[in-house]
Each structure stands twice: as C-alpha cells, then as structure tokens.
Write a protein that binds this DNA or RNA. Structure first.
Lengths: 123, 123, 123, 123
DNA sequence: GTGGTCTAGACCACT
DNA sequence: GTGGTCTAGACCACC
C-alpha cells in the first residue's frame, strides 16, 4: 500500500539526519567541536530541547561525544564515520533505484541517464 | 540554507504526485479508465474533495481527461506521458546526485556503487 | 578520592531504575500493560515528560514496547527480564560487599550475619 | 509510598556518614588525631563550616572528642566504636536484603550468590 | 483516552 | 559560557 503521504518525521529526527550527513561528509571533521546546542537551535529556529534530542540520537550512535561544560565533539572513530557514510549512501541509492524502477526504468537506462548528466556537467 | 525540514506539502499535491507516477510508469495505461474518486479517496483514507483536487491538477496538466457520466481516463497522448516520465526520472536523479555529492561521493564512485548492486541483483 | 557526595542521579534515571526493578521482580509481569505515563507521573509527582524519559530508557533496553494509542507493555522476552534481574542483583551484591569490606567485615563474618538474620526471621 | 526519589541528604550528613565509616572501620584508629577540619574540607572541596558541622554530629554521638588547641581525636571507647560498626553493618545488610527480596531473591539464593563470588575472588 | 512531540523558560553544575 | 535536567502547558494522530 503506497498510500503513505506526509513522511513528516519528527523534527528532532530530521535534524539528527541532517547532522549525521554533515559528519559523514566531513563537513564536521572527526574530533572537531560542534556548534553549541543553543546556537544550532537558534539557526534552525527550533527549541534547544529539540536540538538536544537530535544530538542525543547521534551520541547514542557513537558519532559524537560530550565533554560537560566544554561542548560536543565529533568522534575520532573514522572507521565508524566511514561506515555510516557508506550506509547513508546505500540507503539513498536503494530509494533512488526503487523509485526509478517504479517509473519503469531498467538498470541500463539508469546508467545511461547517469552518463548523460556527466556530459552535461563537463559542458 | 539547508535548514528545511519536511515542508509538509499539502496532501492533495502528494496524492497528485503519486497518481502522476502511476500514469508515468504505465500502472494506469494510456486510455484506461481511472478508479472512481470515491474509491481512491477511501483507499487513501482521505476526503473525496481532497482527491478531487489531486485529479484537477493532473487534468490541467493534460495527463487525464474527463468524460461526463463515464468517468476519468488516462490521456492517450503517449508522447506527453513519456515526457512526464522523463521529467520525473530526471528530478529523482538530480535529487539523488545532490545527496550523494553532499556525502562526498564522486560520479565515479556512484557509478561503481551502481554496478556493485547490479551484481548483487543477479545473484 | 572517595570524596564524592552527590549521588543525586537525575530523576528520570531514578524512575527508570525503579520501574526496572518492578519489571525484574515480576511486579509488572511479562506482557502486562503498564500504567499510563500521565498516571505514573501524577503518582510520583513529576512532570509527564520526565516519566516519559524514564520509559524511553527502558524501551531502548528492550524491557518494554509501545503500542501507539494502546499503551505500553512489558516485554514478553522472559530471558531478557531474567538477565536484567540477575544483573541488578549482582550490582547490589557488589555494592553491599564493598561497603562491608570498608567496615572491615570478612566474607565469613558477612555470612554469619546473614544466618543470624535468618534465625530472627524465623522467630 | 514507594515514590521517593533521591531525597538528596544534606552534604554535611553525607560527610558525617563517611567519617563515621572511617572510624568504624579502623581507618581512623581509637585515640588517634583526626586531620584538621581545614584539610579535610579542602580535600572534599567543601566549605570548612560544612565539615565542622559533620564533626559536630560525630562528637555528639561520642565518636570523637575535642581537646582545645590540640585538635580532635577518635574516641578510645572501643565498645562504642564496635557498636557503631555493628549498627552500620546491620543497616547496610537490611537495605541489601530488602532490595534483593524486592527482586524476588530468597535467602537461599542470596547465600549461593555470596558463595559464588567467594570462588571468583579466590581465583 | 493513549503516546509522541514541541515550546518556552527555568535552574543547576562545572570551568 | 557549556551541557543537563525539569516543568508547565500545548497540539497532534490514533481508535
């Protein structure tokens, strides 16, 4: 039953997902300090509590650690980060492939679409 | 500004998007009659008015037409359908590529990921 | 440095600990419904949010599961419950032994104290 | 009413309790001079007044006495010390037994747990 | 009625 | 200044 509009995941989960991507992509490098909860909360226009909750998810996942009074830091476990990055990429790939197959695209067609855009890029 | 959680598009737009995919993919073939508004609305757990509005969008786009008393039918304009299909695929492709780039994946890496999953499929 | 008063664990952790004991001891049997968050919160004189947080800990630990709109239920995984019960007992035992050793009691003395109280009980 | 989290005893009481244990265990032997209030207060990171108050409790209990200008000394009343030691041990034992009973452990099970740890110790 | 989420604002401990 | 905790009160989705 594909009737499931409104994705509308909780905000804290969406924030967590976003921060996760930033860590995975290296935008927040391993070991680096993260912006303060209040800062990020203000930037995103959410309550600090909500942002806190997002961080809690990442902390539980081991992607960051907290030093009381000093702030939060990205984990130095680059292997973990790499693994998360792979997992995220994999998830996005699968979602993409499913959607394309739903539109009736074969793997071959998808691949040619890809090379097509490559050429456009190089223009 | 990447701070843009959800956006929570209106339900009728989400429904329209879904129906559009079904037409583009051939699940609802050209010229075929569409299920009744009431039926689809009930399936989706949505007010018939909302579903009506979704249909209106598609009709305006030319993807379907109404025959009074007989119901709604998918357009026979296969060229239009094909064009919509291409556009949808293109949109999904771009979104996918942007996400992958955000994770630091190059085109080459993406392509090898693709061929990787190809092999898994054929197992 | 044994100078570390405070104990003062967060309330939600204390609540979680208490509920954990009740599950481990069978006071809340496997599969049984738990009282509503609001009820327990009122009983304990804390904010529902705080009680929620306690439940979240137990849920993460797998000791209970949530059925939206229906309530929370103790897990049916009796093996897990038994394991938690053992762990809790072990922790309390160790704390007790450390304290007794600090007071200069040997294992033999501790054991005889135990049998002493047994006799009192049977009076 | 089992809802009674923390209670968070006043610091001076926690300090008194700790010092009491040290006297009971012989770490501060009968008749021996106690460290200066200021020293202990500094060690514990506490205001000397607070530590003073802890001493006052013990003095009232007869566990130590003050010799003006010379300082504080542990009582020579070994009977009293022994009695306090017994009382403390008894309290801890009872607390432990209550907790274990709450977890559904019988005296027999508790005793076998004890002998179990004995074997581990001797490894 | 249930749980889930979110906000606004507060206080604490630490440094 | 940091993170951590807590409260009070609100709204939502579900059945």
């Amino acid at each position: 039953m594909p009737w499931d509009f409104d994705s509308s995941a909780p905000i804290y989960a969406q924030l967590a997902s976003l921060l996760r991507s930033r860590i995975a992509s290296g935008e927040y490098p391993p070991g680096s300090p993260l912006p303060a909860v209040r800062t990020l909360a203000a930037e995103a226009g959410v309550n600090p509590n909500t942002m806190q909750r997002a961080f809690a998810q990442l902390e539980q996942q081991g992607l960051l650690y907290t030093r009381r009074t000093a702030g939060r830091f990205v984990t130095e476990d680059t292997a973990l980060i790499a693994e998360v990055r792979r997992r995220l990429a994999r998830e996005k790939l699968e979602l993409f492939l499913i959607q394309m197959e739903q539109l009736g695209y074969s793997r071959g067609e998808i691949r040619s679409l890809l090379t097509e855009t490559d050429k456009e890029e190089s223009k």
